[in-house]
């Protein structure tokens, strides 16, 4: 978008929306939308409070545990599926099913099996993230150029060398793409888990604020969450672009 020959920065329209928000809030059109300035004021008030920090640390713990499990399990499983036809044919239908299944329906099962706590939320997060990571790692391995594999063999690479020096790197762009999408899904998963098991993390905080009609508190937490989620996704996209230079040239 250019105005009078001056190029407007990409996300700058968010300022316009912020302004609109402020105006609507000031006009007092609805109780649910307090002015943005008030929300931001509240944001700085609550950001250091123990309740907020507790929610943040619980959420981060669940999020990082879920993401770590997904990556540590998902990438090797995907690579194995890409390398072994039998394993692939046995597992692929299930991976596809869980990828498109409405995973929210499984949360009640997790709650009765693992209790109303952290474990269930971590598993929810993992379930949201892992399938796409598996699928992309698999695709990454399957697209490895055949002559790269033959090159490794003809120069006498040991299986371990071939894996760590060739396959892993050759599949890296796809693997990273899967990890990026997986992590974005994990953010959604951890929040959905907390909403349904609403005694942990931000779930508890939302419950507290909404039952006391603390609107600006609520919006403040939402802004923090959305900003965090967006930053994570942009950071990952940036990292992915850094290896993309060779993705097209393999």
């Amino acid at each position: 978008m250019t105005v009078f020959g001056y190029r407007l920065p990409a996300m700058s329209s968010l300022l316009v929306w912020g302004l609109l928000w402020e105006i609507i809030g000031r006009l007092g059109l609805t109780f649910f939308i307090p002015p943005l300035s008030e929300v931001i004021g509240t944001l700085f008030e609550i950001i250091g409070t123990p309740a907020f920090l507790k929610a943040l640390s619980e959420t981060s713990y669940a999020f990082f545990s879920g993401v770590t499990i997904s990556i540590v399990v998902g990438i090797p499983v995907g690579i194995l599926m890409g390398k072994s036809r039998l394993l692939d044919e046995l597992l692929l239908p299930w991976v596809n099913i869980f990828l498109s299944a409405p995973l929210t329906a499984l949360v009640p099962v997790l709650m009765v099996l693992f209790g109303f706590g952290m474990t269930s939320i971590i598993i929810t997060t993992t379930l949201f993230a892992i399938w796409i990571i598996i699928l992309n790692a698999r695709a990454g391995v399957m697209q490895i150029n055949r002559s790269l594999v033959e090159m490794g063999r003809s120069f006498g690479a040991s299986p371990l060398d071939a894996f760590f020096k060739i396959y892993l790197w050759a599949a890296l762009p796809e693997i990273l793409g899967g990890v990026r999408i997986g992590i974005i899904r994990a953010v959604k998963g951890v929040i959905i888990g907390q909403l349904l098991i609403s005694i942990v993390g931000f779930g508890a905080l939302f419950e507290l604020y909404s039952s006391n009609f603390l609107m600006s508190h609520f919006w403040a937490v939402l802004i923090v969450l959305f900003a965090l989620a967006f930053s994570i996704s942009e950071l990952l996209a940036y990292l992915e672009r850094r290896v993309a230079y060779y993705a097209a040239k393999r």
């Binding site: 974005i184 953010v187 959604k188 951890v190 929040i191 959905i192 909403l195 931000f202 939302f206 937490v221 939402l222 969450l225 959305f226 989620a229 967006f230 994570i232 996704s233 942009e234």
Partner: peptide, 8 residues
Amino acid sequence: QAAPLAAL
């Protein structure tokens, strides 16, 4: 797209 909209 990136945000956990369920929180709304």
